[in-house]
Structures are given as C-alpha cells and as structure tokens.
C-alpha cells in the first residue's frame, strides 16, 4: 500500500511473495501505481475494495514526503485519510486480525496512526530486528576472507 511506483521494497517483495505462493494486490494513489506491474498483481483504487479482497497482511510503504511537491498527491492529510491507516481503518484491521508490515522508517500520522505500532499483529519491529540480522549475515558472507573461511568450514563439514 502506498508508493508502489518508486519502491524497490515493493518490486522485490511482490515477486518474492508471488514465488512463495501468495496473492498480491496493490493499493495507493493511482499516480503512484506502476503501469507496467507484473500481471499477477491485482491493482485496487479504493481502500474499501482492497479490504473486501480480505488480505491477511497489509504491507505499507514509506512515503517520500517530497512526492507531494511533484503532485503525486495533494496533501499529507488527504494521503493519510485516503491511502493510510487512520484510526477508523485500524480499528477494523484489529477486529479482522490483519497483519501489518512496513519496511520502516515509518511516517507516523501519514502511513499509519501511532496505535498501529502497538498492535499485536504489527510486524514492523520484528521486520527491523530481522532486517538487521539478515543484513549482518549478508555483509559477513560478502566479505572475501569470510567467504573462504565459510567455504572451508562447509568442506570440512561435508568430509
């Protein structure tokens, strides 16, 4: 949900989700929905329609605030009410038990209201935590000396 057009997170996550057998829909200002999105992606133009699709997870995207100047949407206020998780929308999400994700950092009051952050099924802090561990592991593996060591360890393990 949100700025799909400019989001690398969205581009890779959507393909990953698809590979894992999930259905993927997108919702946001039509100015920020890509015209050339993969055919497996279902676009929604209204929040109500997206909700009626009964998603298990809502994955919000960070809004670059300078997009307003480029006329992708008229104001933060309208973005929040139309494309974000307002208090009313969050109440419904909580009732339905829908998981909420966001790559962070969050613009509070724009993509979501504060209450979402304390929601039991809000995975945002877990995402941050796992994100750090994953990045550490990748950086570690990318370092040439570590790669040799790892390879040796693996070889040792096999033999």
């Amino acid at each position: 949900m949100g700025d799909i057009l400019h989001s690398r997170v969205a581009r890779s996550t959507m393909q990953c989700c698809h590979k894992l057998g999930m259905e993927v829909g997108i919702f946001g200002p039509a100015t920020l929905l890509p015209a050339g999105a993969h055919s497996f992606i279902k676009p929604f133009y209204k929040y109500e329609d997206a909700l009626a699709w009964q998603p298990h997870v809502m994955y919000l995207l960070r809004l670059q605030l300078e997009r307003q100047k480029a006329n992708f949407f008229p104001s933060m206020r309208e973005y929040h009410h139309t494309f974000g998780l307002s208090q009313e929308r969050f109440n419904e999400i909580e009732r339905e038990g829908i998981y909420v994700m966001h790559p962070g950092p969050v613009n509070r009051g724009v993509e979501l209201v504060d209450a979402v952050m304390d929601y039991e099924r809000c995975l945002i802090n877990t995402q941050v935590e796992n994100g750090i561990a994953t990045r550490m592991a990748i950086l570690y593996l990318l370092h040439p000396s570590n790669r040799k060591k790892e390879a040796a360890a693996v070889e040792e393990h096999i033999s």
Partner: peptide, 15 residues
Amino acid sequence: PLVLRRAMEYARNFD
C-alpha cells in the same frame, strides 16, 4: 501537462 497527467491518474481513485 504533467500536473494534468497526475490529476487524471489521481481522479481514478475516486471514479
């Protein structure tokens, strides 16, 4: 024309 393009796209959210 860029402003108009954005307006046309944005209007789609509201039919």
